[in-house]
């Protein structure tokens, strides 16, 4: 029996739903496809095929890898290396810190646990960008500007990641920890050898959150990573776009490089990430 909330109940309606959904999907994908095609074109060729409009807009007639070659040697190449290093360090150290906090807040029993949890959650409820400007002043006073440490620190503790991990830890049967205690395992051993290995989906979801935050960060590196040796990818990309003579081919190639890494990770880990999002949005 078809339920009254379903749209695709007859072949004709299924067809309509399919067409609508695919139009939306193509609409979201087109700008990326245009970017990908443009990255293999020469700068002047990007504005070809527009008047009159032609389907060739999305398929370069002559492929060139010059744009990528230009980027690798310049400031942009270094910025991508910086971004990869900073983001990798953020995800690894950040996951450890967030998982430790989540473990204490879900498994360990101590007086004031509810208060600490509320404090952690409420503090991280204030979005980072809102206090980024005063924090940048502090970091300059502490001489942390233009250092990797200064770029990495703000991405390490993430209330969302702590929350996702805590939810997951609470659903692991506590008997496992109890049995391990009886066998003489310390809390660190329980955390490291029982909880972390059992929590791969939550760790991937939380790690992806940390990754997206740091990889896409713009305001913070704009204020803290101003030295040419510490520039991150998004800033270098904006610098390309702000030059006097804009090289559109290079911009598209740079934009594609910066999208490629999250895109690949997203396609691999989409399920874990969407599940961790869903667990906060609806169960919250």
């Amino acid at each position: 029996m078809a339920l009254p909330n379903q749209l695709a109940t007859t072949p004709a309606r299924t067809f309509a739903v399919t067409v609508l959904a695919w139009i939306a999907a193509v609409g979201f994908a087109l700008p990326l496809l245009w970017m990908l095609a443009g990255s293999f074109r020469t700068g002047t060729d990007i504005f070809a095929n527009l008047y009159p409009l032609s389907w060739k807009l999305f398929f370069p007639s002559e492929m060139t890898f010059d744009n990528y070659a230009t980027l690798v040697g310049g400031e942009f190449g270094l910025s991508v290396v910086n971004s990869i290093f900073v983001t990798a360090a953020t995800v690894l150290v950040g996951l450890l810190i967030c998982a430790m906090a989540a473990f204490a807040l879900s498994i360990l029993r101590f007086r004031g646990a509810a208060f600490v949890f509320a404090l952690v959650v409420l503090s991280f409820l204030v979005p980072f960008d809102a206090i980024a400007v005063p924090l940048a002043n502090l970091f300059r006073a502490w001489n942390l500007d233009n250092s990797y440490v200064g770029l990495i620190l703000p991405g390490l503790a993430n209330g969302f990641a702590i929350f996702v991990l805590r939810q997951f830890f609470m659903n692991i049967p506590f008997e496992l920890a109890e049995a391990a205690r009886v066998d003489g395992l310390g809390w660190w051993g329980i955390f490291w050898r029982i909880y972390l290995p059992l929590s791969k989906p939550a760790l991937i979801g939380a790690g992806f959150t940390l990754f997206l935050f740091q990889w896409g960060a713009y305001l913070w590196p704009l204020m803290i990573g101003t030295d040419p040796s510490k520039v991150l990818g998004p800033i270098a990309l904006a610098n390309l776009a702000g030059q006097f003579e804009v090289d559109f081919g290079a911009i598209f190639a740079g934009a594609f490089l910066l999208t490629l890494v999250p895109l690949v990770l997203l396609l691999i880990f989409q399920r874990q990430f969407t599940e961790s999002l869903a667990s906060t949005g609806t169960k919250g």
Partner: peptide
Amino acid sequence: ERFPGVGIVRTLVFIPVAAPAAVATVIWGV
């Protein structure tokens, strides 16, 4: 709803989330 290619459509709609804000900005700027 259930229709042909629903998984691909969901992924395509979701893909821009992965692009850093600076990327989206620069592309739309052009």
